[in-house]
Design a protein around this nucleic acid. Structure first.
Lengths: 142, 142
DNA sequence: AATTATAGTTGACATTATCAATTACATTGC
DNA sequence: GCAATGTAATTGATAATGTCAACTATAATT
């Protein structure tokens, strides 16, 4: 069960979290996926924000970002503004209805976070995050 | 960056780990995916093992397990034996070539684990696993 | 014996992800 | 200034993972 040298506990957490995020997305009633929601949060936080910013933050292919962004534009949650420094690029901006969605996301997010960490101390949580960062850096440093 | 109340560090770890597992799978040169490899490990460890055992351990749909198992059978890595207690069900058994693969997997796995946790103490690692378990239980308990 | 439950399979489909090729613009070095 | 090279974004193709619903066959329950 508690195999010191196995990743099962992490795998199970990841899977449970994924399901949780899908349910979160459903609660928003706006037909978006978890990745769309992550992108909304990123655009809301980082201003100005380009597609490349999103791709590099998420460490994802630009192709995926383009498609996620397109859906968000179709749904009038974000808009593309010209990037004065680079005609190839655009600034992505949260619209009014996008802002309302981001507010909803924040509330639901807080609930999830609280549920997930309800019996953990601040120290345990930050320790968990510190170790997560170390491990991902170990994997990425190659 | 180090947002106390965000899951970004975990998300990044998950993504880095996923990439790592794909590379592991490629190293095996047997055209299997990370999930196939997880299933091989499960069948090897749990004897006897049925498809339902795998589904419940992975918390995955039976449909997915059926397909993963079928690929492994096609590649002669596991075989289906009759389950004497239930004619609907089968015992899944690692074949000879499957056993050789499992051995290779173990080696590559150990390398990954070492790389990922190289600057972590035993205590940190087990703390990480303890917290992971707690969080996934929190999410699953509903 | 009839009803209900379970093991496994199959088909359809959504989400996430990557790669390669392309277009348009930007930057660098001559 | 201009050629070469690099970068932002898009599009098409495709793979891996995951879920749901419907189904068959067998098991368990009443």
């Amino acid at each position: 069960m508690s195999d010191r040298k196995s990743l099962e506990s992490l795998f199970h957490l990841v899977h449970a979290l994924k399901r949780q995020l899908f349910e979160q997305a459903e609660q928003l009633n706006v037909n978006l996926t978890p990745m769309h929601i992550r992108v909304m949060k990123i655009i809301d936080r980082k201003k100005p924000c380009t597609a490349i910013d999103i791709a590099s933050f998420l460490r994802r292919d630009k192709a995926q970002v383009t498609r996620l962004v397109n859906t968000l534009i179709e749904k009038d949650l974000i808009s593309k503004e010209p990037n004065p420094n680079d005609k190839r690029s655009h600034y992505l901006c949260v619209t009014e209805s996008g802002t309302r969605l981001v507010d909803e996301i924040a509330k639901i997010d807080a609930n999830t976070m609280q549920m997930m960490t309800k019996n953990l101390s601040e120290e345990e949580l930050s320790e968990f995050q510190r170790i997560s960062s170390l491990m991902s850096k170990n994997l990425e440093a190659r």
